[in-house]
């Protein structure tokens, strides 16, 4: 996928272990290196602060409640990470998306998620304009 010697890194914030695992596999298939997973707010913030990922995928509902929004805001304000929500609960998101770049709606498909992650990597690598051809997963959700 990506020929850069340095792999782009990702943190997955998701309380459903199986979904996190699935996301991790998809992300690796696309060419990301997975720094870590987190299932609750404090864990997520620590992982993001320590790992400084290029991309954060964040579910809204975590083990300690709807704290994904706080995690996203923290990542947006304190790191250079691109932040994207992955949620089945679009309604729980604030209008400004807490500064996040976009939303991938659950249930996503593997192909859709792959496409979205590949697109996000291009954005991180500054290979595309942000306005360019957003994949349908990101577009439909946004």
């Amino acid at each position: 996928m990506k020929s850069d010697s340095v792999k782009r890194s990702i943190v997955i914030v998701e309380d459903e272990v199986l979904l996190a695992l699935d996301l991790e596999m998809i992300a690796e298939e696309v060419g990301y290196s997975v720094i870590g997973q987190a299932a609750k707010k404090s864990e997520a913030i620590a992982t993001i602060d320590k790992g400084r990922p290029d991309l954060c995928l964040i579910d809204v509902h975590l083990l300690d409640g709807p704290t994904g929004v706080d995690v996203a805001r923290h990542a947006v304000e304190n790191t250079d990470a691109l932040v994207v929500f992955v949620t089945a609960n679009r309604a729980a998101l604030p209008d400004d998306l807490a500064g996040a770049y976009g939303v991938i709606a659950k249930p996503y498909t593997v192909s859709g998620m792959r496409e979205a992650l590949a697109h996000l990597m291009k954005i991180i690598n500054q290979e595309v304009d942000r306005a360019d051809q957003t994949p349908i997963e990101l577009r439909a959700a946004g």
Binding site: E16, L19, A88, K106, P107, T109, V110
Partner: peptide, 8 residues
């Protein structure tokens, strides 16, 4: 939605 995602 979450469960459909899980099944998938």
């Amino acid at each position: 939605k979450n469960n459909l995602q899980l099944i998938s």
